[in-house]
């Protein structure tokens, strides 16, 4: 299956104020891969995710998904295949109940009402928050909001899952649950994160972004074990390699 291959070629993007967010960025992610996107603040991770989701368009270069170049003309087709979970769930949740929040994508995609109900129930079950179905999102804890935000994206049945800082603000138990949940997904996953231990556990491959371009890429164990490289890019070794406590796991 080649339809989930993501190719980014010489991507360049500057914000209207002139800030160069991405420059000459190229990489390729194959079907079913789980890739960590790491980098210091302002390295361009979130901007890149917005390009992959078809919410921003390259000024030069191109983004291809399954062989199709992302353009304004085929954007609806692309957005059906890519699901983006935002960094802050409060930026993503806007409907009055969890059910309507999760139903938002399938309803917009024209799924018949009976199937929407079934789909929402199954996704909420999968994420482990079916008890929150009738509740308003603003009454939920941060961890619950994040789970609902993930369910809301999964309900769109995307092939590719983009996650922006998925473990930010989660307590150790919720973080562990999230890791286990994501580990079970067969989607092609791109995880932009500062949580290098999560990257170590979840993603066999890592791409480091620095100043809007790829500074290094390769197997996570090699990249995340290279202290010199990480320091150059404004990062540190994962806690597990520093001899620090392993968040959310039991010490042996």
């Amino acid at each position: 299956m080649s339809h989930h291959i993501i190719e980014v070629e010489d991507l360049k993007y500057s914000y209207p104020d002139g800030t160069e967010a991405l420059r000459d960025l190229s990489f390729r992610i194959t079907h079913g891969e789980s890739v960590a996107l790491i980098g210091a603040n302002g390295a361009g991770k979130s901007t890149l995710l917005l390009h992959l989701a078809g919410l921003l368009f390259p000024q030069t270069g191109r983004v291809r998904l399954g062989g199709i170049t992302v353009t304004r003309k085929n954007i609806l087709q692309i957005r059906r295949r890519v699901g983006l979970v935002f960094q802050d769930p409060d930026d993503q949740l806007f409907m009055p109940t969890v059910f309507e929040e999760v139903a938002f994508a399938p309803v917009n995609m024209g799924v018949p009402p009976d199937e929407v109900k079934e789909l929402v129930n199954s996704v909420l079950e999968q994420v482990g928050v079916s008890h929150l179905r009738p509740r308003p999102p603003y009454r939920l804890s941060h961890g619950e909001k994040r789970a609902v935000a993930l369910a809301a994206v999964l309900a769109g049945l995307p092939d590719v899952l983009l996650l922006d800082e998925p473990s930010a603000g989660l307590d150790p138990r919720a973080r562990r649950q999230l890791i286990e949940l994501l580990r079970g997904f067969t989607h092609t996953k791109i995880v932009a994160t500062h949580d290098l231990d999560l990257a170590w556990e979840l993603c066999p491959r890592t791409i480091i972004l620095a100043a809007g371009t790829v500074a290094a890429e390769g197997p996570s164990r090699e990249i995340l074990g290279d202290e010199k490289l990480l320091r150059c890019c404004g990062l540190e070794l994962p806690l597990r390699l520093q001899g620090g406590p392993l968040v959310g796991t039991t010490r042996e």
Partner: peptide
């Protein structure tokens, strides 16, 4: 951001 989240979901 909210608008982008809505657009991203169709």
């Amino acid at each position: 951001c909210l608008y982008l989240a809505m657009v991203a979901r169709g």
